[in-house]
């Protein structure tokens, strides 16, 4: 669906990396092909390789493996890595903790926190404890509208608000 007359690929080209909820990695492509496909300019992967494989050394070991043969956690790594290949100014990461073991979630969150030093991350996450541990700002969306926004530190202390919208603190 075009937004403001711009089509999906044009929006992406303006510097937005998308990590969808169900990861949507290309299962029949190798890890390397998944990453190469994400290049917008020739050499993108060479430039961002150190960052990507520093965050996810596992991917480097599995470059020639089919995406579909990776574990859930590795697929999530690949989905994030794919968004890091071009020089994106904003990463949209949707529910990165979904369907992953707690240990893997910890690793994922650590990685997201590290990469937020390089680019802006917009994280959609239901797991409040985790999201609150790594973010600076929050936006609470209710029925399609932003109902609250502010610094994450303030939200952490606002127990009633958290209780109302997220049910758990």
């Amino acid at each position: 669906m075009p937004i403001n007359g711009r089509r999906t690929f044009q929006i992406a080209q303006s510097g937005i990396g998308y990590v969808p909820e169900h990861r949507a990695i290309f299962r029949d492509l190798t890890v390397l092909e998944n990453l190469t496909l994400a290049e917008r300019k020739r050499g993108d992967l060479r430039r961002s390789g150190d960052l990507i494989f520093g965050l996810f050394p596992r991917l480097h070991e599995r470059l020639q493996q089919q995406g579909g043969t990776l574990s859930g956690g590795e697929q999530q790594m690949l989905a994030i890595a794919r968004a890091l290949v071009p020089d994106n100014r904003l990463l949209l990461i949707d529910e990165p903790s979904e369907g992953l073991a707690p240990v893997i979630i910890e690793q994922m969150m650590a990685a997201i926190q590290q990469l937020s030093a390089y680019t802006t991350v917009l994280l959609v996450e239901q797991n409040f404890r985790m999201a609150s541990a790594i973010s600076q700002r929050y936006y609470i969306v209710d029925d399609g509208r932003t109902v609250h926004t502010g610094a994450m530190a303030a939200l952490r202390d606002n127990k009633p608000l958290v209780q109302t919208y997220l049910g758990a603190a």
Partner: peptide
């Protein structure tokens, strides 16, 4: 090959 699996995601890559 990627598009055969998921053309929407290919477009989301730019």
């Amino acid at each position: 090959r990627a598009g055969v699996q998921d053309s929407t995601m290919v477009e989301a890559l730019g």
